[in-house]
């Protein structure tokens, strides 16, 4: 077992568990909930987009699935204690994973670019369905959820802990897959899928597994979100910007790393909220967001963690000997399995 990695995880968990006890303001907690939500979803997206190298642009379809499932469930069931939606959350995740498996199986018959196309189409189809099946979804009117009966002083706590729970679940699954044959298989698929198939890796199996787990996690986040917002509208539940958020955070932090997506979320969600607050209402917000996106892609295409880890490694390598490739003690959280080793001077 990797003790430092587990220690880091433990410290983070305890710190995040204790955070609400500090008596934070409502808006801070609100911001934290969204940060945790995006961290969880980016971490989940990373399983497919980062590790398997399949850039799904359709994850928001499953976010909306989770949101609508919770929304529809409580059209027919009452909320008494207020915790019922959280109780059925695992069911939401499981169902989304089950729905996701055949979709992934079909979509992953194609390679990276076409896969992205198919998934983004899936997102728009899901949105159109939500608009058009108005007997079921209420169409553009949306669905209203019962108001959560929590006392005002601690209103955000259940949502905070639910999002935290999803984040930890997602990170644990990522960690486990990185330490297991699944992670190795995914690395191989990303590097060269045909060779992976040639050396006997069950390519389709691991791809669909990662997709299915990933969308299940995202759907759970969608469920919590719906309950927190207490309403579900098609254009917000199936928002392309939600997908883009996940993708962006993973790219910013570093693909196929354990901590990259979380770092990305911690930087971008508050930044995004600030932009929305400053430029809110006007569509300048969209322009600013796209500009940030483009800058990240152009200046740091590999993400923060891999870039920084490379720098550190190179500095260390200068001290000992000439370039000897990744040393034995490469920290798994940052460098390992990030991408094919690029000779120095790859990124400027």
């Amino acid at each position: 077992m990797n003790v430092p990695a587990l220690a880091r995880g433990g410290v983070l968990t305890v710190a995040l568990l204790a955070l609400p006890l500090l008596g934070l303001e409502h808006w801070v907690l609100n911001l934290l909930i969204f940060t945790l939500m995006y961290a969880a979803m980016s971490s989940a997206w990373n399983l497919v987009g980062g590790f398997a190298g399949y850039p799904s642009l359709g994850h928001a379809a499953f976010f909306g699935f989770g949101a609508y499932f919770i929304g529809l469930w409580f059209q027919h069931h009452d909320v008494v204690s207020g915790y019922e939606p959280f109780v059925i959350l695992p069911l939401v995740g499981l169902l989304a994973a089950l729905v996701g498996a055949p979709i992934g199986w079909i979509a992953m018959r194609t390679r990276a670019d076409v896969f992205a196309i198919v998934t983004i189409t899936l997102l728009f189809v899901a949105q159109t369905l939500a608009f058009n099946l108005d007997d079921l979804t209420g169409g553009a009117q949306g669905l209203a959820m019962p108001t959560p009966p929590f006392e005002l002083a601690r209103f955000e706590w259940p949502f905070y802990y639910a999002m935290l729970w999803i984040l930890l679940l997602s990170m644990a699954l990522t960690y486990l897959s990185m330490r297991s044959k699944v992670g190795l298989s995914l690395d191989t698929v990303r590097a060269d899928e045909d060779k992976a198939l040639g050396i006997g890796i069950h390519v389709q199996g691991v791809k669909v597994l990662s997709f299915s787990v990933s969308v299940g996690l995202v759907a759970m986040a969608g469920g919590v979100w719906a309950y927190y917002e207490t309403f579900v509208y098609p254009q917000f539940a199936f928002d392309p910007l939600i997908t883009i958020g996940m993708v962006l955070m993973v790219f910013l932090g570093g693909r196929a790393t354990l901590w990259g997506p979380i770092l990305g979320a911690v930087i971008l969600v508050p930044g995004q909220q600030y932009l929305a607050y400053k430029l809110g209402g006007s569509q300048l917000y969209l322009i600013a967001y796209a500009a940030v996106f483009l800058l990240i892609m152009l200046l740091m295409p590999r993400g923060i963690l891999p870039t920084v880890a490379d720098r550190l490694r190179r500095r260390r390598a200068v001290g000992t000997s000439s370039d000897a490739g990744p040393p034995t003690a490469a920290p798994p959280s940052a460098g390992a399995g990030s991408s094919v080793p690029v000779p120095s001077g790859g990124t400027a």
């Binding site: 910007l241 883009i244 569509q283 300048l284 917000y285 969209l286 322009i287 600013a288 967001y289 796209a290 500009a291 996106f293 483009l294 892609m297």
Partner: peptide, 8 residues
Amino acid sequence: AVALLLEG
């Protein structure tokens, strides 16, 4: 991102 930029 370019599409979003143009949309904005």
